[in-house]
Write a protein that binds this DNA or RNA. Structure first.
Length: 460
DNA sequence: CATTACGTATCC
DNA sequence: GGATACGTA
């Protein structure tokens, strides 16, 4: 078996998840152009999820509701609930847990975010192929599957997308020899059959639709998932990776959407991920470090070995609020007020987590953001789930940063290694052993500085 | 002013 | 231990 084709990995991603949660709650929103906003004072609120009907009008995430309405006057809006003066995402976290529970019936899952999870289906696919005993996989078992790269010749006068999908799928199935259960393409095909079943189960249990990618590793599965949204799944075989990568912008690969991706295109003068195959592993390591260089060398050939972790729960619990522009917190009282609101939310979520998941947070982190997006973080021990205490501790940590912040030049002190030299600064104590989770809280603060605030560490 | 509110991983 | 990067609703 060729390297990199050992596993069957799937990524399941909910379609405009927050929007679907709101549509399930309010049937009037279904099938319409709509969006989810948080807050409403500034420009009607910020859009964080958009139905596909609204996307057709050009509405997108990150827009202000006022801009979106200009593009789509009929746009219906749902609002994120508020509690303690801030956006409260509980509704979506709970919906996420419903989805994760269904996914967990089929395989160990790695929760990748609130609305997506990776599954390693290698063993399950192998079992199902064995049960098939060399028989064919009927196209009817893959009703929403696209095979990337097929049909090979779309033809001059092709019909709609569904017709193309079916032609591609039939070409694919016709190309497989079903007598060899070790054939990686056959394993992916069975993986896709299983994912069809998983997606039906998710919709049946939750009412939510999703898309999925099926391939040999996490990066390809993630990429595949995005190729035919919404409510469809895509199989990416190693067979078609060279063709797919030859015109795929570097930035469309997971982890390459930011600075690393920009560095790659700038330094190497390439546009597409496939062009990286021209460079030696050593060259890539020279520019991007040993680990990243080796990762890139394999990745541009469609190979990646990062395992699907068995992790169902989030590793940290946090909350944050920004205070942009003139809403910046100006007084000590205001800072304490908002820290307490954040700590109250944290306390509530921590208590729920402890009783449901039998683990305990041990570390509190406070993050402060200044103008220009400068962030400073500080840790301390979290010994009790007590909002007032967390608030006081966080404030103590923040005060030190704020004092330094008063003298502009001293800010570097705060973010540097001299932290422990600052008065009252050091209180981080990570409990030994199995301490794992970090819970965070974030806020924005006063005059010169804007602040985030804090996390915490959990153990089982 | 104002892309908010999360969450994870890696580097040094 | 803290900074930094990356990613998505």
């Amino acid at each position: 078996m060729s390297r990199g084709r050992e596993r069957v990995v799937a990524l399941v991603d909910m379609d405009c998840f927050f929007m679907q949660v709101e549509q399930r709650l309010d049937p009037q929103l279904r099938g319409r152009p709509c969006a989810v906003v948080q807050y409403t004072e500034w420009q009607g609120g910020g859009i964080i999820a958009v139905s596909y009907e609204a996307r057709a009008f050009g509405v997108s995430r990150g827009m202000w509701a006022s801009e979106a309405r200009a593009l789509c006057p009929e746009l219906a809006l749902a609002r994120v609930p508020q509690a303690r003066g801030k956006a409260d995402l509980t509704r979506y976290r709970d919906a996420s847990a419903e989805v994760m529970q269904v996914l967990s019936r089929f395989a160990a899952i790695e929760r990748a975010s609130i609305d997506e999870a990776y599954l390693d289906l290698t063993g399950t696919a192998r079992d199902r192929l064995r049960a098939l005993q060399g028989g064919p996989v009927p196209a009817a078992l893959l009703p929403s599957t696209f095979v990337q790269g097929l049909p090979g010749d779309p033809g001059p006068e092709s019909g709609g997308k569904e017709e193309l999908r079916q032609r591609g799928l039939h070409e694919w199935l016709a190309s497989l020899s079903f007598d060899n259960p070790d054939c990686p393409d056959l394993q992916l095909t069975m993986g896709a059959v299983i994912v069809e079943e998983i997606r039906v189960a998710v919709e049946e249990a939750t009412g939510f639709r999703c898309s999925a990618g099926i391939s040999h590793n996490k990066t390809l599965a993630k990429l595949a998932c995005g190729l035919n949204k919404p409510n469809r799944q895509t199989l990416v075989s190693a067979r078609f990776v060279p063709q797919l990568f030859s015109q795929l912008p570097v930035s469309s690969i997971r982890n390459l959407g930011g600075k690393l991706g920009t560095a790659i295109t700038d330094i190497l003068g390439v546009e597409y991920i496939g062009q990286l195959t021209q460079f030696s592993e050593t060259e890539l390591q020279t520019h991007f470090g040993d680990k990243t260089g080796s990762w890139l060398y394999d990745l541009c050939r469609g190979i990646e070995e990062e395992p699907v972790k068995n992790r169902y729960l989030p590793q940290s619990i946090g909350c944050s609020k920004n205070f942009p522009g003139r809403t910046a917190l100006a007084t000590q009282k205001a800072v304490q007020h908002w820290l307490l609101q954040l700590a109250l939310e944290l306390e509530s979520r921590l208590n729920k987590d402890r009783s449901q998941n039998h683990r305990v947070a041990r570390q509190l982190m406070v993050v402060i953001r200044q103008q220009g997006d400068t962030r400073v973080s500080r840790f301390c021990a979290l010994s009790r789930y007590d909002a007032q205490k967390m608030c006081n501790d966080a404030f103590t940590l923040i005060q030190n940063c704020n004092a330094a912040g008063m003298q502009q030049a001293a800010w570097n002190c705060c973010s540097g290694k001299r932290l422990s030299a600052l008065p009252n600064a050091a209180c981080y104590v990570c409990s030994g052993g199995s301490s794992t989770n970090v819970l965070s809280e974030e806020t924005s603060l006063p005059p010169l500085a804007r602040y985030y605030s804090s996390p915490v560490c959990l153990h089982h």
